[in-house]
Design a protein around this nucleic acid. Structure first.
Length: 190
DNA sequence: CTTAGGATCGCCT
DNA sequence: GGCGATCCTAAGC
């Protein structure tokens, strides 16, 4: 495997970064795989945690780009975001699904399931499988335990509406790798 | 296939 | 008190 570090410009718009991240490999302590599903969120976006301004929970999303924003979802799950734009802006990319490639047994042990398709097919599952918790909130993505590896081939990316939100449903800021079997949900066709 | 409910935390009104 | 950028299980069609 080629270990070329991904050179993502996290200062760009989250929608641009979200598309560029499809096909990039993310590892946490050596466990991870190819990103196949992302969603973009922005300060001027009613569906974003940052829409209402800074709070203790979302503070790291207002921090420097290229760092992690980890939040607790529904009081139970963790969700991992990559911070975008500049300090104080409040934008990020939610990592929604990964194609498991490295550390499969660690993932199975943490998730309690065997089926590869169920290991990382959702934002909460990704964090459970990779061992991401609040302890990772605010950490830089270019230093351990994180590793980002460039994609080896161009990815075919489809865009569509985001999942699990009740505002800005028409904004097509969900990005998936076409044909992937590891998505949280298939991309609507047509 | 679809829908419903429970778990449970941070921030909102 | 209410509501999520969720997940799992169960039940109904």
């Amino acid at each position: 495997m080629k270990s070329i570090l991904a050179d993502i410009d996290f200062a760009r718009d989250s929608s641009v970064v979200a598309r560029q991240l499809i096909g990039v490999t993310v590892l946490v302590d050596g466990v991870g795989g190819r990103i196949v599903e992302t969603e973009a969120y922005d300060r001027l976006d009613p569906a974003s945690h940052t829409f209402g301004g800074q709070t203790p929970r979302n503070a790291s999303m207002f921090g420097p780009p290229g760092h992690a924003y980890v939040y607790r979802s529904y009081g139970i799950h963790w969700c991992l975001n990559f911070v975008c734009r500049e300090v104080g802006h409040g934008a990020g990319v939610l990592i929604r699904a990964i194609e498991p490639l490295f550390g499969l047994e660690a993932m199975r042990a943490r998730r309690g399931v065997d089926d590869e398709r169920l290991l990382c097919s959702g934002p909460g599952k990704v964090c459970q499988a990779l061992g991401v918790t609040h302890a990772h909130n605010g950490l830089p993505l270019d230093a351990p335990p994180f590793v980002l590896l460039a994609r080896e081939e161009e990815a075919v990316v489809l865009a569509g509406p985001r999942i699990g939100i009740s505002k800005a449903m028409d904004v097509p800021w969900r990005f998936v790798e076409a044909g992937s079997k590891f998505l949280s949900k298939p991309m609507r066709v047509g």
